[in-house]
Every structure is written in structure tokens, then in C-alpha cells.
Nucleic acid binder design. Structure first.
Lengths: 264, 264
DNA sequence: CCGTACATTGTACAACGTACGCCGTACGGT
DNA sequence: ACCGTACGGCGTACGTTGTACAATGTACGG
């Protein structure tokens, strides 16, 4: 359990690392035995396999085949490692040419790409980026995703806001999904087991007079999803709302479809 | 630097604690010197004053005037304490009667109440609740907030999804704001200082040929907000999109206003 | 009035990030 | 060719976290 904060160290040094602007002046003494990418790749593999909690400096060092403190010759600290991991992930995202497709299809595809990213690397959604890691990966991602709003008539400021809105939604959904999975794993209880264990107590305590709407709606939603929270359904529903909300801005006349976005 | 996870312990025990169903059989031996509420209140005060990082079992115990391990006589562990803190917060939320107002006003008011909650207690947005703490506070909140969708014509399952969508949005916005504040505090750098320190390097690295759209849009957005990220603006913009997105579902005919919701 | 149930707590442990300082290597200058 | 030194590597250690365990002391039921 750790709040995976990023970017705490010297920001200028972080930028140099992200863009690999290591000032290699006159070399003296032994050459570095590993590369920055070795470390970042090992950390990503570790996070993919065992989650962000497993990404400790000791574990990463072990994976790289080096003593823990050796890592500090390559990076200032763990915060920078997290930044580098996230930027490396962003750099790998697919960027197919979607010119010619309608904006809603393109924007939905951006959402899906991000969702896939978080599905493959759930830890990425947990890294807090108060100031985002302005590395080559994020820049390429930003450049590409902004193009999804080409021909929407949005001015630049609004275009940025629209993209932020979309990405924040996908990220929040990914966090919810990750939290739900983590809870299920930690308590080693499925949703059914939980209700079997707690239903009786809840029944005595949730009288319908005190919470009539909550009991009725909660029961209906629970029955529909077979769970108290259903991240997948929340994502599908939310994405449609997000796209409709953007459509109200982009196509103010015909903003009336609540169907799911077409595939791309 | 901690992933504030909640609800890890025995779920049944957690429920008993939330609803204060402590089985007080025949008393023997010394009476407890404090109450559960003493501990929860002290923890909330601590979190309000110094953030969630400051809420350690030792600090809470100190605030209550007791040895650290004494807390474990009242709660199974820290996860349950976090659950209790969140539920206590929810119980305190205002719940004015908003019958008669249009749905968009009521829903906007729900968003504002939640935003105010996270403004007063930023740590609440950081507590991960894979399975939400089904205590009296959350139930009262759920009951009240569902009523904001009365007369919208939404069925129960959709009503739950709509509320979840709205609350997830507000929470994500609060997290972004908290992260931005934390970053600014930790690096002790304002946005202007950051750009002064990193602008030169960024300029050499962000050539407009590689990222034409990104550079242009980023510059426009940065100039408009005086910052790379502007949580307040993201919230205002996002809330309008959220309401428009819900409107497309609720008022499919006249879904065309992108003005901010009226006050309530 | 005493035995016991229970609240309280001191100590301890395994993790974490990382500061500090020593070791040995291999290059630049001569 | 050689040596001084800059620099990569790392062993050890510190302060922090949540909490397990066993000892201590208190106040009630019989």
C-alpha cells in the first residue's frame, strides 16, 4: 500500500531523463553496466506481473541484477522511475491513421486505446501525476489524440479541455476497475461470497423505511450487474455519456444519439 | 506515499463497525477508555489538518491520548479506520429538500455538494474503496442523491448508473486537484517557477515539426489557464459535459444547452 | 474478597526509500 | 607506460510504516 507519487525530485533532472539528455562529457572510470531503459523495462515488467506494490527499488534492482543502491546512479529516486515507466508506456501506444472517420468514431477509438492500455497495465492508472511527465511518449500521445478532434470546430483551448475530459474519464474508470479487482483479490472473496456473508446483517440494518429509494435502486442495480459495483458497465454507460456531452458541444443541432460508438 | 486502501479486513466486522453493532454482552474487566467515534474523529481532524499521509496509527493514537496498539482493541486495522472516516464524512453532508427544482439544477447541486466535500476534506477522494463502505453515511448519501433523478424517467438501473457517472466524475476531478496541489507543495514550485526552470530544455526538445498540434494547443491551453493543468477549469468544463451527456438521455429532444447549470 | 475477562501497552519484526562512505576500475595527462 | 583520480557499484544503516505477540493491570461477577 503506497501512494505512488511521481515527479517529486528535481523537475529539470526529470526532464533530462525523460528525453534521454544525459550529458555524456569526457568519460572517466568504469562504464555504466546497465542502461536507463534496462531499469525502466524491468520495472514495467515487474509492475505488469505483480502490480505497483511490487515495484520497490530492491525488487527492481534484483530484476536488473544489481544492488539496490546502484539504481540511484541512474535515477534520482523512485518518483522519476515512475515517470519514466509511464512515459515509456505512452510511447508504445498504437497510433493508426484515422483521418476520414467521423469525429465520434475517432474519439471513441482514443478512449478504447487508453482503456486497453490500462487493461494491460493497470498500475499505470494509479500513478499520480500532479504534473504530467512531459516526455516523448506523452508528447506523441498528446499530439495523436488531439488529432481525433480535427474538424470538430473546437478552438484550441476547448480541444485540450475535451481531451482532458475524455482521458480523465477513462482513467477514473480504470482506477475503479483496478480497485475492485484489488479488493476482490485481497479479501479473496467473490461478490457472491461477500453478499452471503454480509447479507443478513445488511438486511437487518437497511430498513426500507429509512432508505426506500436506495434499497430499491440498489437491489435493481445489483441484480442487473450481479455485483454492487460493475466497472465494465460503468465504463460503457459513462463513455456514451461522455461522447453525448461532447456532441452537445460539437454537433449542437443533432445531439440526440445515445447509441454506442461504432467500432473502428 | 501510501495507497490508502480501505476495507481489507473481515468485511462482516467492518459492517458491524460502520453500523455500530458492537455486541455488548455481559461487561467484565475495565471499560474502554475511549469510543470508536473518538478515534474516527481524531483521525478525520488529523487528515483535515495534515493530509492522509499524517494518518498513521501512531499519530492517531497520540491524538486520542493512547498507545498505538490500543487502537487495535477498537478496530481490526487501518483499513477499517479509513472506511469509518469516509462514512462519517458522508453522514455529515447537507441534504436540503430540492423537490420542485428541475432535474439539472438538482443534479448540479449534488455535484457541488460533493465538490465542496472534497474541497473541505481532500483526503476523502484518495481513499480507494473497491467495495464502498456500506455504512449509514453512505446509505443516506445514496438515498438523497438518487432523489436528484426523480422525474427524469430513468429506470432504476440507469438511475444508479447516472449517479455513479456523476460521482465518479467529481471524485476524479477532486483527485486531480489534490494531486496538483500536492505536487506544487512537494516541489515547492509554482507553475511559473517550473516553466522558468524547464522552459529552455523543453523548447529545445519540443520542435514544432514533430508535434505541431501538441505545441500549438498546449501553448494555447497553457496561456488560457496560466498553468499546464487547471483542475478548476477542467471541473467546470467537465461538469457541463456530464450534464449535457445526461441530458441526451433524459431530455432527448431538447438536448442542446451547454450553459452552466443554474444555482440552487 | 478473589478469580478472571478484558483493556492497555512495550517490544519486536519485516518491509520501505534512500543517505553515507568505502571499494575498485579504467581513462586522461604526462 | 604509468599513475592520479573521476566515477560506477554497493554494504550498511536509519527512520518510517502497519501490526503480531505476550505481559500488565484493572474492575466486575460470583
Amino acid at each position: 500500500m503506497s501512494t505512488y507519487r511521481s515527479g517529486a525530485g528535481d523537475p529539470a533532472r526529470t526532464l533530462q531523463l525523460l528525453w534521454r539528455r544525459l550529458d555524456d562529457g569526457p568519460r572517466r572510470g568504469p562504464r555504466p553496466g546497465r542502461s536507463l531503459d534496462d531499469i525502466v523495462s524491468a520495472a514495467i515488467e515487474l509492475a505488469d506481473a505483480e502490480g505497483l506494490d511490487a515495484v520497490t527499488m530492491r525488487r527492481v534492482a534484483q530484476a536488473v541484477g544489481v544492488a539496490p543502491m546502484t539504481l540511484y546512479g541512474y535515477l534520482p529516486g523512485k518518483a522519476e522511475l515512475l515517470d519514466l515507466m509511464v512515459d515509456a508506456l505512452y510511447a508504445r501506444l498504437p497510433r493508426p491513421d484515422r483521418a476520414g472517420q467521423p469525429w465520434r468514431t475517432r474519439v471513441a477509438a482514443v478512449a478504447r486505446d487508453n482503456r486497453d492500455l490500462f487493461a494491460a497495465h493497470p498500475w499505470a492508472a494509479e500513478v499520480a501525476t500532479g504534473r504530467p511527465p512531459l516526455g516523448p511518449g506523452l508528447m506523441a500521445k498528446y499530439e495523436y489524440e488531439l488529432r481525433a478532434f480535427d474538424d470538430t470546430g473546437l478552438d484550441d483551448v476547448t480541444r485540450d479541455a475535451a481531451l482532458t475530459f475524455l482521458l480523465d474519464f477513462v482513467r477514473a474508470a480504470a482506477r475503479s476497475a483496478a480497485e475492485a479487482r484489488a479488493t476482490r483479490r485481497e479479501t479473496a472473496q467473490s461478490e457472491e461470497q461477500w453478499w452471503a456473508a454480509n447479507g443478513p446483517l445488511l438486511a437487518t440494518v437497511l430498513d426500507e423505511e429509512a432508505y426506500p429509494t436506495a434499497v430499491r435502486v440498489g437491489a435493481a442495480a445489483g441484480a442487473a450487474h450481479n455485483a454492487a459495483v460493475d466497472p465494465d458497465h460503468a465504463y460503457e454507460f459513462g463513455l456514451d455519456r461522455v461522447l453525448d456531452g461532447l456532441a452537445a458541444l460539437i454537433d449542437p443541432v443533432a445531439a440526440r444519439r445515445s447509441t454506442a460508438a461504432d467500432p473502428g
